[in-house]
Simulated assay, not measured.
Amino acid sequence: MVLFLEALAFIVDPANLLGEKGILPRLVDHLLYTGLSLGVALLIGIPVGLIIGHTGKGKNLVIALTGSFRALPTFGLLLFIILFTGLGLWPLVFVLAVLAIPPIIAGAYSGLDSVNRETIDSARAIGMTEWQILGKVEIPLALPLILGGIRSATLQIIATATIAGYVGLTGLGRFLIEGLAYHDYTIAFAGAILVAALALAADGLLALVQKLVVPPGVSRGSARTTHRSRWNFRPAVSTGTHITGG
């Protein structure tokens, strides 16, 4: 309890907020690493997940590859890349993006795969193109799972970006490294609190975004339960009525 109070006192002390080793500059760096890595992961993971979910092709291969990516030791992979490229920002971004791609692909693929097939068939029956079906039917209905994958990836990046301090960069992980190196456990614990608080804040913000952008009727439950929503398309059918001569 004493250590926790000392760590909180360190965080709220104005003297520790600014400067080369201040909390705010390192927070900005941590957010920079997270944003760049997440951006790269989204550019790769979202298109791949949507293509697999829409076409159903290549899912076994991609699922196997993403599963193997999850098993990679992040710090070991970072050190391996640094041996060839040297220290810098982009090796870290690459490794964090590799970590984030699997949950993003899984969220996009699972989201589209969960969309009611009858809804998609109805959209085709009224003449919608495949791009229209993807953009106006499947993605809106799949948004809860797509955003869930992005939330998971974001939290993993924030937590893992602490290794930046081991490769000549800064970020909130520097508090952990310096605290353990100098046996100053107050600073180390303060770093852990800051990383946890950032992860919780990011998760809360993404949860709010998820609530705002998901269409009504699909925010509470999977896409399979939304067959009565406004995204359900009914094909025009013949009523069987005919005109007879009088």
Rank of each mutant, 00 (worst) to 15 (best):
G168H: 01
L169F: 03
L169N: 03
T170M: 09
T170V: 12
T170D: 13
T170R: 11
T170S: 15
G171D: 07
G171S: 10
L172R: 12
L172E: 09
G173V: 08
R174W: 01
I177S: 03
I177P: 01
I177Y: 10
E178S: 14
E178V: 11
E178M: 09
E178I: 13
G179C: 10
L180R: 14
L180P: 00
L180Q: 15
L180D: 10
L180V: 15
A181F: 05
A181R: 13
A181T: 14
A181E: 12
A181G: 11
Y182N: 15
Y182F: 15
H183I: 09
H183K: 06
H183R: 09
H183W: 03
D184E: 07
D184M: 08
D184H: 14
Y185T: 13
Y185D: 07
Y185I: 02
T186P: 09
T186S: 13
T186F: 08
T186R: 15
I187R: 15
I187N: 08
I187Y: 07
A188E: 12
A188T: 11
A188K: 08
A188N: 10
F189Y: 14
F189Q: 09
F189H: 14
F189A: 04
F189N: 04
A190Y: 12
A190Q: 08
A190W: 07
G191F: 05
G191W: 10
G191K: 04
G191L: 06
A192G: 14
A192Y: 03
A192I: 15
I193E: 05
I193R: 05
I193D: 06
L194D: 05
L194C: 03
L194S: 10
L194P: 08
V195R: 08
V195H: 06
V195E: 07
A196L: 10
A197R: 04
A197I: 12
A197Y: 03
A197K: 06
L198Y: 12
L198K: 07
L198D: 14
A199T: 14
A199R: 10
A201T: 14
A202T: 02
A202S: 12
A202V: 06
A202D: 03
D203H: 03
G204D: 06
L205D: 07
L206Y: 05
L206Q: 08
A207L: 09
A207N: 04
L208Y: 13
V209F: 07
V209A: 09
Q210N: 04
Q210Y: 00
Q210M: 03
K211D: 02
K211Y: 07
K211P: 00
L212A: 12
V214L: 01
P215Y: 02
P215E: 03
P215D: 01
G217Y: 05
G217P: 01
V218S: 00
V218Q: 00
V218G: 01
S219N: 04
S219P: 00
S219H: 07
S219I: 07
R220I: 03
R220M: 11
R220G: 13
R220P: 00
R220W: 02
G221Y: 01
G221I: 06
S222Y: 02
S222V: 04
S222P: 00
S222D: 06
S222E: 05
